[in-house]
Simulated assay, not measured.
Amino acid sequence: MINEENRVSCVVFDWAGTTVDFGCEAPVGAFMKAFEQEGLPVSEAEARGPMGLPKRDHVRELLKLERVSALFAEKYGRAWTEEDVDRIYAASVPALMAVLKDYCEPIPGVVETVAELRRMGLKIGSTTGYTKEMMDIVAPGAAARGYAPDSLVTPDETGAGRPAPYMIFRNMEKLGVYPPANVVKAGDTLADVREGKNAGVWSVGIIEGSSELGLSRDECAALSTTERVDRFAAVRDRFYGAGADFVIDRITELPKLIEQINKLKSHQETK
């Protein structure tokens, strides 16, 4: 018998790359365009590196890259400053805002999985690296396609984004759930994993559709069996390296994982 008070009561999802926008493509293109305009071209892999952080922080992390810092110094004859972060971030915003409406489609399995989680009695929260202004486009677009969490918290609301835990704590407050051991955070980036760990909740990485995998839906489907195994294994290792408690291949595996966590919690309770 599992004590109801010792069960997982809430899942807090990330958005792009986890529940919508397979491959987390919208922000990648916006950052690449903004840096290109500055004469500082970044690769897709570089652009994805800090994914999951608040978008201004994302720009700063790209400027910190040794190659990009050197390129900046060569082009401008000085080291970059916070003014440069602000300028490049400002350039990325309209590029991102212009395309967000086209990246609201739920990732396959999301709508059905969320319905199953709700049948299990769980509440659905969400955190993001997007601003409230950006989510004012994404959230209604996703809702029109069948996905609407019970709670949404953006970095603007808490004053700090990932890897800080405050967005998760605000979700817990809004939804009336506690303790952290009864909450699961699920996301597609290393920043998501660290956010969950810093909040003291169960932290789960999801591979398929993730920015860490970095493939579109068609590219993922086209992988050979060997390629899929190798690519997924590399992402799994990175998630675990960031501290993930569990890593699953796709979101549809989450209900069974939560049952597993509940059994683990029950076993710990009876020790």
Rank of each mutant, 00 (worst) to 15 (best):
D188Y: 08
D192L: 09
A160I: 08
V183K: 01
M167G: 01
L175Y: 03
S151D: 15
V201I: 12
G187V: 09
E208H: 08
E208I: 12
A199V: 09
R194Y: 11
G159S: 07
V204E: 05
V177W: 06
A186T: 03
A164F: 04
P155L: 01
I168S: 04
G161I: 00
R194Q: 15
G196Y: 07
Y166L: 05
P149M: 12
N198Y: 07
A181I: 05
P165H: 14
K197H: 12
P179A: 05
E157L: 04
E208A: 15
A160M: 13
G159F: 09
R194K: 15
S151H: 13
A199L: 10
K197L: 15
A160C: 15
L152D: 12
V184P: 06
A186Q: 01
D156Y: 07
I206R: 04
G161Q: 06
K185H: 05
F169W: 05
V177D: 03
A186Y: 01
L175K: 04
G205P: 12
V204D: 03
R194L: 15
V193W: 04
D188W: 07
G161E: 07
M172R: 01
A181W: 03
R162Q: 14
G159R: 03
I207D: 07
P179K: 02
V193Y: 04
Y178H: 11
D188G: 10
L175F: 03
V184Q: 09
E157K: 06
I206L: 02
S151Q: 11
A181M: 09
M172I: 03
V193E: 02
S151R: 12
I206V: 00
A191M: 13
R162K: 15
Y147E: 13
P179W: 05
G200S: 12
Y178F: 08
G196K: 02
F169T: 04
W202Q: 11
V193P: 02
S203G: 13
S203I: 10
D188C: 05
L190H: 08
R170E: 00
P149D: 15
V184T: 13
G176T: 05
T189W: 12
G200C: 09
L152A: 11
G176Q: 06
A148S: 15
N171M: 01
N182Y: 07
R170A: 00
P163H: 14
L152T: 14
P180H: 09
P163C: 13
L175G: 05
G176S: 04
A199Q: 09
M167Q: 01
P149N: 15
E208Y: 09
A181Q: 12
